[in-house]
Design a protein around this nucleic acid. Sequence first.
DNA 1: GTGAAAGCGCTAACAT
DNA 2: ATGTTAGCGCTTTCAC
Lengths: 343, 343
Amino acid sequence: MGPGRGGRRATLADVAARAGVSTALVSIVMRDLPGASPANRTRIWQAATELGYRPDARARLLRSNRSKLIGVVFTVEQAFHADIVTGLYSAADNVGYELALSAVTPARGEQQAVASLLTDRCEALVLIGPQTPAAQIAELASRAPVVVLARAVRDRAVDVIRNDDAAGIHQAVDHLVAQGHRRIAHIDGGRAPGATERRNAYQTALRRHGLTDMRLAPGGPTEGPGAEAARTLLTSPRPTAVLAFNDRTAAGAMDTFHRAGLNVPADMSVVGYDDSHLARQTHLNLTTVAQDVAQMAELAIQRAVDRANGVTVRHRETILQPHLVSRETTAPPRPNPRSLKRA
Amino acid sequence: MGPGRGGRRATLADVAARAGVSTALVSIVMRDLPGASPANRTRIWQAATELGYRPDARARLLRSNRSKLIGVVFTVEQAFHADIVTGLYSAADNVGYELALSAVTPARGEQQAVASLLTDRCEALVLIGPQTPAAQIAELASRAPVVVLARAVRDRAVDVIRNDDAAGIHQAVDHLVAQGHRRIAHIDGGRAPGATERRNAYQTALRRHGLTDMRLAPGGPTEGPGAEAARTLLTSPRPTAVLAFNDRTAAGAMDTFHRAGLNVPADMSVVGYDDSHLARQTHLNLTTVAQDVAQMAELAIQRAVDRANGVTVRHRETILQPHLVSRETTAPPRPNPRSLKRA
DNA sequence: GTGAAAGCGCTAACAT
DNA sequence: ATGTTAGCGCTTTCAC
């Protein structure tokens, strides 16, 4: 039975000794490189298995001076970040890289998360929706290639992959207007990355449709602020549709509406943003603006690897087109009793 | 200005050369060990800063043959896991360890997550709510100390930190019964870790109160199943209270109730489990059974470090007492509408 | 196809 | 207080 855990972990040398070959040969076999006879291949694999040998990542990387590691900074509570991390894993795997995850928690800032990644000798860093000021991110970029995901950072030194917030919001507004909505409110994301872009786009979009009845409610990127902001929208004249900063904001808002006895979408349409796994939950079934997470992840890894290998990259900023996913939280408004009276 | 990124990263030797001292001395200073003159300390720090020097974790750990690394396997979409990870970071920090995070995603199994941690030479592994069969976990434990969090695993080889599910459920039931509820349903967690324990405890607890009117709805650990299960509870005779497997299940159920025009808690009381950050969201404000996450995290790290250092640990399984947090989703049932008949 | 030997960047003994 | 030296486990020439 297995190696137990009493003694030292098995090393390359142990395997070599047991197989009666040199360490160099074992190294070749373990990495599946050409240059070893089939006979030795099997013999070495067997010895390795018997000893429960696992290569030591530290030593390997120290020697080859390539960590094949991409550092990822994400916020542990953000559902959308989780979706992206999922995508990053597959993308990295495809190009032979590993991910080093470093979480931002209420007690662990982005600085700290980044510092540990640097110590790990990541070849590049991917920051998901970072809150760090652009100047600091730029400075970081002088130490390692940096790819920023889901946030706009205008700096020549950092790569950015993000979605076209304006386009997404416009699609959402177009959708609502096409259904006949005229009073469309927006619950914004406060200081969250992308909030400003979406807020501005909301205003532009309404104007473009000749709608002057704007209703902007200060919100935030989570359910709580969404629910609270929604309460302020209950007062007459109530909007017939709400565009939320993201899916979580939307979920919070819907909760408020349901509690107030409103039916979504009959009495109130709601649109989210992100198409996170939350939106797809059958009980929410939220109409939302989808960012192509898989593609974002793929591009981010691609970019990170290219930079790490000194490939010259042309576009520092890649802006992806989002698309509306129409589910069941939007519908034409039903005639408002008060406007009927007026008519 | 900084080091730029054209050349090699600075090494200990570079710093030593620049400061005009030996590498050993630099090593001492970088680790803040006693044994260097204040004069050299400042000189070395300055040289290091000028060169933008960062110690290489790999080399350091390779040499000292202690990785000071605790591997953590978690599921990226689970809110409760996120809470635990947050706690683990602080706990590890307190004892001078780092965390190596390895996520389980829809496309990346627990096996794979564990394998990468093993390659990283983590001194111990913490598995959060793993789904892996006990036998495999036991086998893993022969390769490295393993601490399992939030799941029962009866095996001499692995440490377990979990909460007393039975006690938690009993508290919840006691709370509801004290408020006057007699028809209490349970939406279970399906095959999720802890689901069986909670389901059994529900039945025991009701019996203990002489309540024979059980209503067990098959659910799951997320909102979707919770919402769906709740629909089956709407039929008469409706329960007056629902005990959900966890907070997410509860959130899904509440959503269904609100849509059905029920008021929580007036028409239906709801209790969750975990006291995840979700439960604390002001819009939910969920009565729930709280596991002390900080303490779980602390104990897990403690245990992991002890094992890694060969300390003999007495209790392989530590069972924490949860406690009920009474918020605003529970209240005494109001008289059955059928008897009031629209009064 | 295979092996010997020289490091990767660092720490830990042991000198001085 | 400071320097010298020998590796940690691995990959990579460069011989054979």
